[in-house]
Amino acid sequence: DVEPGKFYKGVVTRIEKYGAFINLNEQVRGLLRPRDMISLRLENLNVGDEIIVQAIDVRPEKREIDFKYIP
């Protein structure tokens, strides 16, 4: 289970104008929005990159997770 405030290693699987989709595993995916990136820009991410993200909002009923990147 993903818990708000905890850090997780994930893989960038898709990049859109509104953010990057990060997979923690095959069943768990969330969104990293540009506003939640500190010292990292969306255009510097590539599909396949491994990054450490912090879960900031977890909505299991909608199967949605918002992430934050903190270097």
Rank of each mutant, 00 (worst) to 15 (best):
D1M: 14
D1N: 15
E3D: 09
E3V: 14
P4W: 07
G5A: 05
G5C: 08
K6Y: 10
K6P: 03
K6L: 11
Y8T: 00
Y8H: 02
Y8D: 01
Y8R: 00
K9C: 10
K9M: 11
K9T: 10
K9L: 13
K9E: 05
K9A: 10
K9V: 12
G10I: 02
G10A: 04
G10M: 04
G10D: 01
G10K: 01
G10P: 00
V11R: 13
V11P: 00
T13D: 06
T13I: 07
T13C: 06
R14W: 08
R14V: 08
I15M: 07
I15N: 00
I15L: 10
E16N: 09
E16H: 10
K17V: 14
K17R: 14
K17N: 13
Y18G: 05
G19T: 02
G19C: 03
A20C: 07
A20Y: 04
F21L: 10
I22K: 00
N23K: 13
N23E: 12
N23G: 08
N23M: 11
N23D: 12
N23T: 12
L24R: 01
L24E: 00
N25G: 11
N25H: 09
N25E: 05
E26C: 10
E26Y: 14
Q27E: 13
R29T: 12
R29F: 13
R29L: 08
G30R: 01
G30I: 03
G30N: 02
L31A: 02
L31S: 02
L31D: 02
L32N: 00
L32V: 03
L32I: 04
L32Q: 01
L32K: 00
R33D: 02
R33Q: 05
R33P: 01
R33T: 03
P34L: 11
P34V: 13
R35L: 08
R35Y: 09
R35H: 11
R35S: 10
D36T: 03
D36N: 14
D36Y: 08
D36H: 13
M37Q: 03
M37A: 06
M37G: 03
M37P: 02
I38A: 11
I38Y: 11
S39G: 15
S39E: 15
L40R: 04
L40Q: 06
L40N: 05
L40Y: 06
R41Q: 12
R41M: 12
L42M: 09
L42A: 03
L42H: 04
E43L: 08
E43M: 09
N44W: 14
N44Y: 11
L45A: 01
L45V: 07
N46S: 15
N46D: 10
N46E: 12
V47L: 13
V47D: 03
V47Q: 06
V47I: 14
V47K: 06
G48I: 02
G48Y: 06
D49F: 06
D49Q: 11
E50P: 13
E50N: 13
I51E: 00
I51Q: 00
I51K: 00
I51G: 00
I52D: 05
V53Y: 00
V53S: 00
V53I: 08
V53F: 02
V53E: 00
V53R: 00
V53K: 00
V53C: 04
Q54N: 04
Q54C: 10
A55D: 00
A55E: 02
A55T: 07
A55F: 04
I56S: 07
I56H: 08
I56N: 05
D57M: 14
D57G: 14
D57C: 09
V58L: 06
V58D: 03
R59Y: 05
P60C: 07
P60V: 13
E61H: 12
E61M: 10
E61S: 12
K62W: 08
K62T: 12
K62A: 11
K62H: 10
R63L: 13
R63H: 14
R63K: 15
R63P: 08
E64V: 08
E64D: 06
I65W: 09
I65K: 02
D66L: 12
D66H: 08
F67M: 04
F67H: 01
F67T: 01
K68N: 04
K68T: 08
K68H: 07
K68E: 04
K68M: 12
Y69K: 02
Y69C: 03
Y69L: 05
Y69G: 02
I70R: 08
I70D: 15
I70L: 13
P71F: 05
P71K: 08
